[in-house]
Simulated assay, not measured.
Amino acid sequence: MTDALKRLSDEGVAIWLDDLSRERLNSGNLAELVQEKHVVGVTTNPTIFQKAIGGNGAYAGQLEDLAVRKLTTDEAVRMITTSDVRDAADVLRPVYDATGGRDGRVSIEVDPRLAHSTAATVAEAKQLWWLVDRPNVFIKIPATKAGLPAITAVLAKGISVNVTLIFSLERYREVMDAYLTGLEQAKATGLDLSSIESVASFFVSRVDTEIDKRLDKVGGAAKELKGKAALANARLAYQAYEEVFGSADGRQEPSDRWKALEAAGAKPQRPLWASTGVKDPNLPDTLYVTELVAPGTVNTMPEATLDATDDHGVVTGDTVRPNYADAKAVLEAVAAAGVDYDDVVQVLEDEGVEKFETSWNELLDTVTATLAAHGSN
């Protein structure tokens, strides 16, 4: 059998797992995925932690200890989540060392309730960096308008960042600008740029979900565009990436601004394909993996998508750069059908922040109840 995951990795796609739980850590499953499925990184988000901690006995002992110490709910949640991220970072440390810090990373997100506050996001990012206390952690900051200056400020302090919840091409360009500005500020204060890493998480499946819903309302020939917009959007994001950082084959020159930073030791901010689990059962379950193969990218997958790719994924080489013209034509056709791209991406950003905030509040409620129960014993 062809090892699709190895082929994917050989094509320059870093395979990350979009999930984490204490059960996965304690059972040795994460270590197995690193050894057997070419997994070289882990991403988390508030929804992942809410599912992991809610009703899971693996956390009972720590919750009881935290209750005895009379920690607040917010403090308890951060103690639990940073503990899992720290342990995952230790599992992945050999990958981090072997890749010179490029991979072997574990991401933890700032409190989603802070998404529209720059100062609070910066303060939270610094606190999480200190709490986890591992060089191979990424602090996830959402690419909201308030998040952009926070991204710059955090990078300027030498903290590695995973920028999340990117949906639009315009916002992605703003994220790359925020990255370059952060590096320039770090350089000005004498920091070692080679120690700073970043990825930009460009969301995929949710774009199809929202646009396809609108295409259904238009009806007629517009329905033929269903399942195409998300790939087009991501492919054009990679084109924008090449315009800043240059192409692996040398066909696209990097920007002068990036050349100056690269000469000082900086590393490119890699595009990361997020939300790659296919939600439409009419589409191939490996679509957002096999059709987004390009060098210098990351694909963070739910375990079901990882398994599907391992089982029947067909990796044929670069499926991004040969399709720039087609991608542009797809988005133009979507616009011609009456779908407002700017409205779509704004709705998705707002919903993304709201969903993570809802999950975080549910997690807080679960921990509050558990702390109260242990505290009454």
Score class of each variant (00 low, 15 high):
D3V: 09
G12M: 05
D18A: 07
D18F: 09
D19G: 08
L30K: 01
V34T: 03
K37C: 10
H38E: 09
V40N: 05
V40R: 03
V42C: 10
V42I: 15
G57T: 12
A58D: 14
L66E: 00
L66Q: 00
A67C: 06
K70A: 07
T73Q: 01
V85L: 09
D87Q: 15
A98D: 10
G104K: 00
I108F: 05
E124R: 08
A125F: 03
W130N: 15
V137Q: 05
A143L: 11
A146D: 13
L148H: 08
A150E: 08
I159F: 04
I166K: 02
L169C: 11
R171S: 13
S194Y: 10
S195W: 06
S195D: 13
E197T: 11
F203W: 04
T209V: 14
A221W: 11
A229G: 05
A229T: 06
A230E: 08
L236R: 04
G246A: 06
G250E: 12
R251D: 14
Q252Y: 13
L272H: 00
W273L: 04
V278P: 01
P281N: 11
P281F: 10
N282H: 15
N282L: 13
T286G: 10
V289Q: 02
V293S: 03
A294D: 03
G296N: 00
D311Y: 15
D318T: 12
A325Y: 12
A329W: 09
A329Q: 14
E332D: 15
A333I: 05
Y341N: 09
W360C: 00
W360Y: 06
N361W: 07
E362D: 13
